[in-house]
Design a protein around this nucleic acid. Structure first.
Lengths: 252, 252
DNA sequence: GGCCGCCAAACTGCATGCAATTCAGGCGCT
DNA sequence: AGCGCCTGAATTGCATGCAGTTTGGCGGCC
């Protein structure tokens, strides 16, 4: 299903890759909510492999930030803080501006057709579940990244997009991303036209609006479990932190 | 040694983390050249652990792009193509612009002192080996990223910086990064002054010049092994590629 | 001499087993 | 009832073992 070409760097061993892809998809479709437990045995049993493999897959997912691994503890789906969500979107904006900058005016007819087809699919799934729309919207961005033919860019955009999906399950109201389809169409149009500045600003505002629509509440008590709430108080044990910024209010 | 605080997402299990850190360092100091073989047994024996752990560590490193894992084959240190190197630098520029944008005018005295101390260390190591200078220069950038207090940004900047180090061993002449120290000092000064635009442009030109100094030759035959050279010719078997851009000349 | 095929050694892919740690809930005490 | 301790079940951390694949080199054949 995933159009990744053969010969990837990691998770090539397949069994591991299968589990990773399945879990990634389950996570971004919110079948697995943040905080959901992922015991190695259960995963292994479910996918017909041993714990060793399940463990390896969890390691990969943890490296991508989708899963949290604590020593001797059951792995859980990551629960990014609100600030981390904001940071992820900031990074995503820069990366995707880079994508469209490289792509502006350089799309082939086939690529344009692929993109249009995908947006049509998004349109068609509009009355489906929210989860599917979110997945399709995300895949649109990954599709763009793939067209740059830069494996590194693909990897980073994918990762950060998945992360953003994850935060959507935490901090957004339902149906927050419904009207993004028109923005996707506009981006395609600008890409075809080749207006580099225009398409970069379009992408910027597109992602910015998604972020702002999603990350509305600074979540006063909405922090899922009280561990998060207590975190800023229990600042002991942070022994070797570099210095600790004093309540930095992030620019922009 | 590495001042990463406790409770990281991945590689927390320590034994794995130790191996990862050791290998990362060996790679960026060019003790391990691109293409060097990394058999699981040898690693396990060297670090006093079983193959299982060594394997897991290799998996993490592969996820970071420092190691290449091919099924049933010995893992090797990654050998990025020239284009990938260029892409990595492009991404790095955007990410680090983001770093300094967030940091401009917001550094504490302690942080400024830390940075100055680090640059002094770079200066002091000027007559040491090239490998050490490169490592210190890289660590300066990671230090900056850490001061944003954004774990995601730290992770991405670190990864991409390591990757760039890796390409330096492949495509650069010796002593290519020696005079970067002054640029580091200039960046600190601009950060302290709080001139956001200035520091972003400084960082941009700094990284751009490092990249240009490093990635001089489009490497006609310098591609290490002929697999790379032959890659563009043997375009069979690329069955399910998205579309294949026709010799795209990257913008900027 | 050069080339091909075969075989043993090396290595990876994966499952399983054992020790150590965490987790849950039940029991007793206040 | 509320609180804490204690114990068994659940779960992870890791090593080892076996099977399948690749590698490299040796001998035979042209």
């Amino acid at each position: 299903m995933a159009p990744r070409s053969a010969g990837k760097t990691a998770e090539s061993s397949d069994k591991v890759g299968v589990i990773c892809r399945a879990l990634r998809r389950a996570i971004i479709e919110q079948a697995l909510e943040p905080g959901a437990k992922l015991p190695e045995d259960s995963l292994g049993e479910r996918f017909g492999v041993s714990r060793t493999i399940a463990r390896h897959a969890l390691g990969q997912l943890a490296a991508e930030g989708l899963v949290e691994l604590r020593r001797n503890r059951i792995a859980v789906v990551a629960t990014p803080s609100w600030q981390e969500a904001r940071d992820a979107f900031d990074i995503r904006i820069e990366l995707e501006r880079l994508v469209v900058r490289q792509l502006a005016g350089k799309l082939t007819k086939a690529q344009i057709a692929t993109l249009n087809a995908h947006v049509d699919a998004e349109d068609g799934a509009r009355d489906g579940t929210d989860a599917v729309s979110i997945r399709l919207a995300t895949e649109f961005h990954i599709l763009l990244a793939q067209m740059t033919n830069s494996p590194i860019l693909v990897r980073y955009v994918s990762e950060v997009a998945y992360r953003c999906c994850l935060t959507l399950s935490l901090y957004s109201r339902p149906h927050s991303s419904e009207c993004a389809i028109n923005e996707h169409r506009a981006i395609i149009a600008a890409l075809v036209k080749g207006d580099e500045a225009k398409v970069m600003s379009l992408m910027h505002s597109h992602l910015d609006s998604v972020a702002n629509r999603a990350l509305v509440a600074p979540a006063p008590q909405r922090g899922r479990d009280l561990l998060d709430i207590l975190a800023p108080y229990a600042d002991e044990g942070e022994s070797e932190r570099v210095v600790k910024m004093p309540k930095v209010v992030r620019a922009r």
